[in-house]
Write a protein that binds this DNA or RNA. Sequence first.
DNA 1: CCGGCCAGTAACTAAACAGTTACTTTGATG
DNA 2: CATCAAAGTAACTGTTTAGTTACTGGCCGG
Lengths: 253, 253
Amino acid sequence: MKNSSVLFAFYNLLIRHYERWEVIEKGKLMEGAGRGGKTTAKRRPRERVLQRDPERTRAAILEAATQEFAENGMGGARVDAIAERAGTNKRMLYHYFGDKEQLYLHVLEEAYVGIRTAERALHIGDRSPEEGISDLALFTWRYFLKHPEFLSLLGTENLHRARWLRQSVRLKELHSHLLGELEQVLERGKKAGVFIDSADPLNVYLTIASLGYFYLSNQYTLSTIFGRELAQPENIDAWERQIVHVTLASIKA
Amino acid sequence: MKNSSVLFAFYNLLIRHYERWEVIEKGKLMEGAGRGGKTTAKRRPRERVLQRDPERTRAAILEAATQEFAENGMGGARVDAIAERAGTNKRMLYHYFGDKEQLYLHVLEEAYVGIRTAERALHIGDRSPEEGISDLALFTWRYFLKHPEFLSLLGTENLHRARWLRQSVRLKELHSHLLGELEQVLERGKKAGVFIDSADPLNVYLTIASLGYFYLSNQYTLSTIFGRELAQPENIDAWERQIVHVTLASIKA
DNA sequence: CCGGCCAGTAACTAAACAGTTACTTTGATG
DNA sequence: CATCAAAGTAACTGTTTAGTTACTGGCCGG
């Protein structure tokens, strides 16, 4: 048995490299390969039809990457898995997005654009101050509920202390609108005497987001330790009412 | 230049394996290596003194693993990095904990035991109902503030839908105490007419935990998008007051 | 006082990984 | 209708990774 593992490994290496050599030689014979410097073999004819639709491929990669990053985080996501989910291959992914990190940043930016765009369409200033606040709370909760991948991406990005989001140039102005509109609603409520003077737009938004985010993003450990299934529809509905109740109670005059 | 890269790779492999061979032969000559089946070389005399302190080594690995998992998540954590941080090596890690997943589960269990043990020492039932609730809120917030690694581990575990926590047998009974004591405090408050009848222990705890968890775990993205530094001491203090205010406002009669 | 067992070490390995190379296919344009 | 750039493919590479192997050294019970 002496040295047998080493011998075996060596043998395997020889075999592997000889096979490769053989393929190279065959390739040269078969296709002539006149251009200098080419060392690889003739490829088998491919079966899959070429898509030739750059926009669709790009979108498919982005969608697949969103799923993969949301499910596995930045460290756990696999580039091969993204390519396969998108029905394409790695080369295209690198072609359109540069590398894994830039792809991840695109996914993150897209996710933020998604929620902020939907939020703008709310126009919380159009109703009474109380309705405006409760509509914002309901919207935020229901958006989180419908987009678990968004919560997951936020979690991943925060694990890395916003390392990639910080580099984003697109997202700075996207958020000032939200706080501005919220401030106007609070001001109107204060003048009408329904909100306390200390009500602050950032605090109100953080309260709403906290209550929604924590319940959903931590539902798995919470359900486990408290032995109650938080994903059950009746519990989901009860928490929705709790969010609106808590938010309004915290600013009511 | 034809085939030069292949030739070069092949050459390197030969060199590498010849060197290894040489070492093996030398090893045999130098130490006799009488015992059959041994194929590896003589090791250099080691410089580090043997610790021979199993408890200390175990604890060091657990501490190092907590840091590494908290900073990089389950997918991003590196077993080599843990061993190095602990001042030991991988073999010991596998010796004491089996594999990466079991080590992670130990870290997670330890983290939960930590917070629940500290929580018990609070005895929130000893004061007035309002004080009990605000003390629980303050304790939870300050514990989160002091133990960012706990928040991080929760986030990682939830990304994986409590895959490992679900397997834990130690943790089921650890949490019933908390809800039981909280329920008693709420009951006393209801009888005294200071809390609303609908106040529910799980909802109250989730509210407190939500407000603390979200602010801290998401501080990096929030600071980036809103352009306000949430980690600033004055902002931290303001949020502590907000948590107590919101929690009490949501249950006050 | 010695032999076996447990703490500890470091080199090793197979597999997985991000990223690259070396090509082929297709359609639009001059 | 030739050509050229963009779209697409798949095999390949260097490196990293979790996990293993093959050892060494010290202590304790017989």
